[in-house]
Amino acid sequence: MIPVLLSELRRRRWATAGWSLGISAYIALNLLTYPIVRDQSKALGQVLASLPGSFKTMVSDSTDLLSPAGFMSSKILYLILPMLFTVLAVSLGSTLLAREERSGTLELLLARPLPRRRLLAGKMAAGLAIMAIVTVAASAIAILFSWRVGLELSLLRIMQAIGLSALMGLMFGGLALALSALGRATGRGSAALSAALAVGGYLVVSLEGLADWLRWPAKLLPYHYYQPTEVLLGGYNWLNAWGFFAITVILAAIAMAGFSRRDIGG
């Protein structure tokens, strides 16, 4: 398992560095605009008041977009960061195994005395490690720049909100991995299905406040339980996060069970 983990990390080191830099740069640039927003909150408040409600619900789960929590949610945490984490996790989940199977190198590994479950565990560990590296980098930059621009929020809660965002992305990555491990979808197919669920879920949930008929289906979607403003304000129900975690573990178990039994394509 360890050689598989290390090899995967080595092969993806530049991509991991790129993701860490990219997400960190996005967070830093947005936080650097906070002093402008804060200083012109009155004028911006009037502009925002004239915008339709649907716009506000699509960019944030906060009603006050100019408060520190609302700013953080609308600029970083509600839409862009979870989508970036989802794209990263889904691309990992859909390639860790499927790319090797498509290229034929999976047989090279399976010809070794390495149980399939241990091989997949090594791949999963690599995916987790990459997600953790990017999350730590994003958290460190968010904390540093929040402190630098005087964003009045708990640094611990900022870290928790970024962690929650990464956890939700990881869940979609787990879905992509499970689909490819079961052999039910190719790498691209599993990525497309997982990404469609993530983006569709976001759209339904962000509009549920405007259309009553969306309220019930929205409750079935993970995005409904992703409330970064509540995390930043300390009112989040962490059972929801445990739910994300449990679903991710279940998807990983499904991937393990499916991969250990099925025929390998060749």
């Binding site: 399976l110 005395p113 060749g266």
Partner: peptide, 17 residues
Amino acid sequence: VAIKRRVGYLAGEVALY
């Protein structure tokens, strides 16, 4: 798994990293 400790395998279409 026990078999693979004692077997060498070459695929028809050699796929390498």
